[in-house]
């Protein structure tokens, strides 16, 4: 049974758009105060859990990659600007990330796949996506103390650049 849990754990690592949002949010959280980081993480975990549960009842999300890329782009720009963001905005961004990632992490109900196995996979996703964000926020927090946070801002620029180009490609494909 643990096999299903581990499969869930790998999911956020195999979806580039999820990984990009987690990286950008982790970098942004690392630029904030410890109390803001803690609050945001709690809100994120709660949002992710709810969204994963909702995948069992809600229909598939349309254009999820587009929404995830817009969020990654916004987060990347905020990382480059290195602003101290107020709590309400950072909580909103954390909730948005958790809902988008959660709702986009649907486990297809294949014939013969028990509900318990599906929930175990969803638990794996919640565990790894939360652990990953916490680790990234922690690394970013300490990286910000080195060389005035240059590395964090440079990684933020990479995230922004990658998101912008793929976003343009998706929009171009949608329009044409």
């Amino acid at each position: 049974m643990s096999h299903f849990f581990w499969q869930g754990c790998l999911h956020p690592l195999l979806v580039p758009a999820h990984l990009l949002v987690l990286l950008a949010l982790g970098l942004l959280l690392g630029q904030q105060t410890p109390s803001t980081i803690r609050t945001s993480l709690v809100v994120y975990v709660a949002g992710l859990g709810s969204a994963l549960f909702l995948t069992r009842v809600l229909p598939r999300m349309e254009q999820s990659e587009l929404s995830l890329l817009i969020l990654a782009l916004s987060l990347g720009l905020l990382v480059i600007l290195k602003l101290r963001i107020n709590l309400a905005l950072i909580v909103t961004l954390s909730i948005s990330a958790s809902l988008l990632i959660g709702l986009d992490s649907r486990v297809s109900a294949l014939p013969g796949l028990d509900a318990s196995k599906i929930y175990l996979q969803l638990l794996g996703i919640a565990f790894s996506a939360s652990l990953l964000l916490s680790l990234l926020a922690l690394i970013s927090f300490y990286l910000n103390k080195l060389l005035a946070g240059i590395a964090v801002r440079i990684i933020g620029a990479w995230v922004t650049a990658g998101s912008l180009m793929v976003l343009a490609l998706l929009l171009h494909e949608l329009i044409s």
Binding site: H3, W6, Q7, L10, H11, L14, V15, R60, D104, S105, R106, V107, S108, L110, L113, Q121
Partner: peptide, 10 residues
């Protein structure tokens, strides 16, 4: 160990 039970297969 990845199965095809995902919306994204990676």
């Amino acid at each position: 160990m990845q199965s095809a039970a995902w919306a994204h297969t990676g």
